[in-house]
Design a protein around this nucleic acid. Structure first.
Lengths: 175, 175
DNA sequence: ACTAATTTTGACTAAACGGTTAAACCAATT
DNA sequence: AATTGGTTTAACCGTTTAGTCAAAATTAGT
């Protein structure tokens, strides 16, 4: 009786791994790698600290999972959007819409990712970049060049424009 | 002989306090409060770790000095510029010029300050804000309203405009 | 109901870290 | 030369922290 109930509850309840990941995300994103404590994550997940090491080898591995997930959410389908065939200004709209929505749901995410990339740029290149669809800026660049020649926009560096979009999205509403 | 030489060297050499502050700035700005190690700062300054506590009571106090100094450099004379009587677009130019120059000299500063404010907003309000000339946005706001009515610029929130200027300055050249 | 495998825990360890202390050092004064 | 006061250091201390381990609890198969 209780067994069947437990099984049912187990299926309904979020699994331990999911609880850990949710807790780790919350703590890491808020405090950063060096500021986060394994004990805090365990408390947040409502489990024993040793269980963290049972599911994830060590702090670094657990952080890596969160960081990669956060990065893939922050730079979601930037390339998919900007490499696609839709007109440039529709790209801006689509990007801003999706991006700002995401930032509003995860306010601390951009600063977190930006900061951790700053702390350890190699990890970004090794762990995040390979998982992302590689950029093919040629199309995006060509579209910008075209608009510049038409005179619809001023001459800008495509990369700077992208960075501006990403950075400005960090503070869509606050203050 | 050596005594006189030492005296001379002592006067020529930067003082210990200056060496500590320079080292602390370098380490704190790079690694953040939680990531910085007192030993690293001591090593960077080329001194014993205990000497840090001789000049500054503890890590928190030393950090505070660096944070306040960094903040006062990052938000330098924003108010002085934006409260002044010069025309709006000259304000933009002056601000961008001074600000970007500063960021180029201290690339890690904006992200550092932004991040630490995020970690402990109260410290910002208690330690940094009081040392800054209070803002008087009314003039700035009025100027923007005027330009909007003239049609020279689109309708924007003055605060958002300021934030955009500050944030965009974080990545003036890189990438 | 019994057993084996999996999951979870409390207690523990070793290292890292912030901070303290007493002694050594050094220039200036007498 | 001895004394004094500010400066610097090596050694040390207590706490925190990531990580370990064996035992307990739970689950799943028979």
């Amino acid at each position: 009786m209780t067994k069947r109930l437990n099984q049912l509850v187990k299926k309904i309840d979020t699994s331990t791994e999911e609880k850990i990941l949710a807790a780790a995300k919350k703590v890491f994103v808020r405090k950063g790698m060096s500021g986060a404590r394994m004990q805090d994550i365990a408390d947040e997940a409502g489990i024993n600290k040793a269980l963290l090491h049972y599911y994830f080898k060590n702090k670094e591995k657990l952080f890596e999972v969160i960081f990669v997930e956060a990065g893939n959410r922050l730079f979601p389908k930037i390339n998919e959007i900007f490499n696609s065939d839709i007109p440039l200004f529709e790209k801006f709209e689509k990007f801003c819409d999706e991006y700002i929505t995401m930032v509003m749901d995860n306010p601390y995410l951009p600063l977190f990712v930006l900061n951790e990339i700053n702390q350890d740029p190699e990890m970004f290149l090794e762990k995040l970049w390979p998982n992302t669809a590689k950029p093919n800026p040629s199309k995006f660049l060509a579209q910008i060049e075209a608009e510049v020649k038409k005179g619809t926009i001023k001459k800008v560096s495509p990369m700077e424009l992208l960075i501006n979009l990403i950075i400005n999205g960090c503070f869509p509403i606050c203050c």
